[in-house]
Design a protein around this nucleic acid. Structure first.
Lengths: 194, 194
DNA sequence: GTCTATAGATCGATAGAC
DNA sequence: GTCTATCGATCTATAGAC
């Protein structure tokens, strides 16, 4: 039975935020019990695979959220420019203007990656390919679109690190705004040309 | 006396690589003794402040290396274009074409940052300002130069994450090459105009 | 399903022999 | 200066009462 006395989605969100703050290794079960209010018994009942299982579910929930919020819109929206703008808005909201990190990217940095390699790889491939798809439908050449997509994702991840390192979230917002303008300008130029 | 039976620089390099692979929290003293071949007694004799002290020295050694390898050249070289190319070469060498991560950036991601905030902040500010300085001397407007400098650092950090996430170092090399071409093209244009 | 108690390993750090 | 032995705390995970 799945008659649990707590909201699984809420708990997954809380655990995700712990991973964001302390990293995978730095997030102890003691911290998780303190934040969620659940005992270890409840946690292991809900997540039989322990901490690794929790991380997997957190990553999957991020994937689901991203799919609904911008992967699918990028792949199917009638107006590609709107979809790109929507992606930047979603990213800004999700990353709280640079205060919050991208957990998938964070896990990719050290050997935490090796434990979730396929999930991480799929996530970034999907992001790149859905954005490439969108830019292509806007009239850009596929090779150019792929390059732009990779540069956009790198821009998000890099500006996040830079903003955190300099303790200045405006750095993140400005960097994202420039990249957004770069894409929309190119798309609008194609729109006028076509 | 500093009569130690080992090469301190080598040990610092080994510890730095451990931090790169496992993160700060994930790097245990057991791992450090296994890799360096030094017992805990030797380690605490050499680093009285323990793991935090080791991390501080690792970060300082990276700062020193970067200062000599590209901060100072960016600030003083007669030929700004050469200095920018030299910076990209140094970064490619240091990060082993994307196989190795930037430890300062990695520490900036989670709350490890809080323990080394000033060191991390100073490092990225110096990088940004020395590159801005170089681009300005090449004839670019200061505001534009600062923006380009931030975008370049973000590009390095972001392409590193992207390459690791997709398990493809070519992504990193291509991203870096494009950013390098972007900067040198702008500088050469100013050179012809001036 | 949730809790407390606890196992067994490992953590960072220290003490003391040599 | 380097080692081994060990401390007390903390780690992930499990057992068993309720």
């Amino acid at each position: 039975m799945s008659t649990q006395g707590f909201d699984r989605a809420v708990v997954i969100g809380q655990i995700g935020d712990l991973f964001r703050s302390h990293g995978y290794e730095g997030t102890s079960l003691a911290r998780i019990t303190a934040t969620t209010g659940l005992g270890k018994g409840s946690l292991y009942n809900a997540f039989p695979k322990g901490k690794a299982g929790m991380a997997e579910e957190v990553l999957n929930s991020i994937d689901t959220w991203s799919t609904n919020s911008f992967f699918l819109p990028l792949e199917t929206a009638d107006d590609p420019i709107e979809a790109v703008i929507g992606m930047f808005d979603a990213v800004r909201t999700y990353l709280e203007c640079g205060d919050r990190i991208c957990l998938v990217g964070a896990f990719a940095i050290d050997d935490t990656r090796d434990n979730f390699a396929e999930l991480i790889r799929r996530y970034f491939l999907r992001w790149r390919d859905s954005l490439t798809n969108c830019l292509t439908r806007a009239g850009l050449k596929p090779a150019h679109a792929t390059t732009l997509a990779e540069e956009t994702i790198a821009s998000v991840q890099g500006n996040l690190i830079l903003a955190r390192a300099m303790a200045d979230t405006e750095t993140f917002m400005h960097g994202l705004a420039r990249q957004e303008a770069r894409l929309t300008t190119l798309m609008r130029a194609r729109q006028r040309a076509g």
